[in-house]
């Protein structure tokens, strides 16, 4: 991991609240693995205390990185207004990243909203390893997942749902998940907690292995402050640090019944 300065190259607005921010930052870009994240400082603001964590959406030519940004509050609002040439500081790449899936298993990727972000970067790695997953993407409405076009280009097999039916099938992605479950399937998931909890139930019922990307409030991002903990199945440890032990976990590591935040 590195402490670095990055320069905004591009800020694309995909819809009301969704942006792709491309940042020139070679040291972080060339050392990054899919599933890892960066902590960004929104510049020129003094009353925010913490950097904001974002999954790496893509790495371009080992020089630039991009993040898929959803405006959620003050920090993300500020980041969404950045224009090219503006500099910001960041640290990364952080966390463990996705393990490479066992190629003998069928891979099912389940993404909810901007939770899809790390899978774009991951797709390239899968391609290099000749792994062809089925990609399931769910969103509230078309405007919340405007990046589906990008994903269509990189995944041959893609299935989309929206809660209002503005694109794809109507409903939630987990409503359709059972249709894709087979023996010996491996699931990778990222998205809101209720979605992950439903997948946890399905995975447990069918005795499936699965991995997921988790979010948590973070301060340091490097494992020092113990802010970002999530409940662990392993009673000994009780908590795992999302930033350092994760953000990618095996579904079996997390005590979902104790997960209420």
């Amino acid at each position: 991991m590195f402490e670095a300065r990055g320069k905004i190259i591009k800020n694309q607005r995909l819809s009301d609240r969704i942006f792709i921010l491309t940042i020139d930052c070679e040291v972080v870009a060339k050392n990054a693995n899919p599933g890892q994240f960066v902590m960004l400082s929104p510049p020129k603001i003094t009353n925010l205390t913490l950097r904001r964590p974002f999954s790496l959406y893509n790495v371009i030519d080992d020089k630039q990185l991009s993040i898929l940004l959803k405006v959620a509050g003050k920090g993300t609002q500020l980041l969404s207004t950045l224009t090219p040439e503006i500099e910001l500081s960041l640290h990364g790449p952080l966390g463990n990243g996705f393990p490479l899936p066992n190629p003998s298993k069928k891979l099912l990727i389940v993404a909810g909203g901007v939770g899809a972000a790390p899978f774009y970067f991951f797709a390239h790695k899968l391609k290099n390893n000749h792994i062809k997953p089925i990609f399931l993407l769910g969103g509230k409405t078309k405007n919340e997942i405007p990046f589906y076009e990008d994903f269509k280009k990189i995944f041959d097999s893609i299935f989309i749902t929206t809660e209002d039916g503005t694109i794809g099938k109507k409903g939630m992605i987990t409503d359709y998940l059972n249709d894709f479950i087979e023996d010996d399937i491996l699931i990778y998931a990222s998205g809101p907690i209720p979605m992950l909890k439903k997948i946890a139930l399905i995975a447990e019922k069918n005795d499936l292995d699965w991995f997921l990307s988790l979010e948590s409030y973070m301060a340091c991002g490097v494992g020092a402050c113990l802010s970002c903990v999530v409940p662990a199945k392993n009673e000994q440890q009780k908590y795992l640090r999302c930033c350092k032990d994760g953000p990618i976990f095996s579904g079996k590591q997390i005590a979902w019944e104790r997960y209420d935040c």
Partner: peptide
């Protein structure tokens, strides 16, 4: 083992 999460909350400054 410490307290249950969430363990931090950002406030102005």
């Amino acid at each position: 083992i410490g307290n249950p999460p969430p363990r931090i909350w950002e406030t102005p400054c």
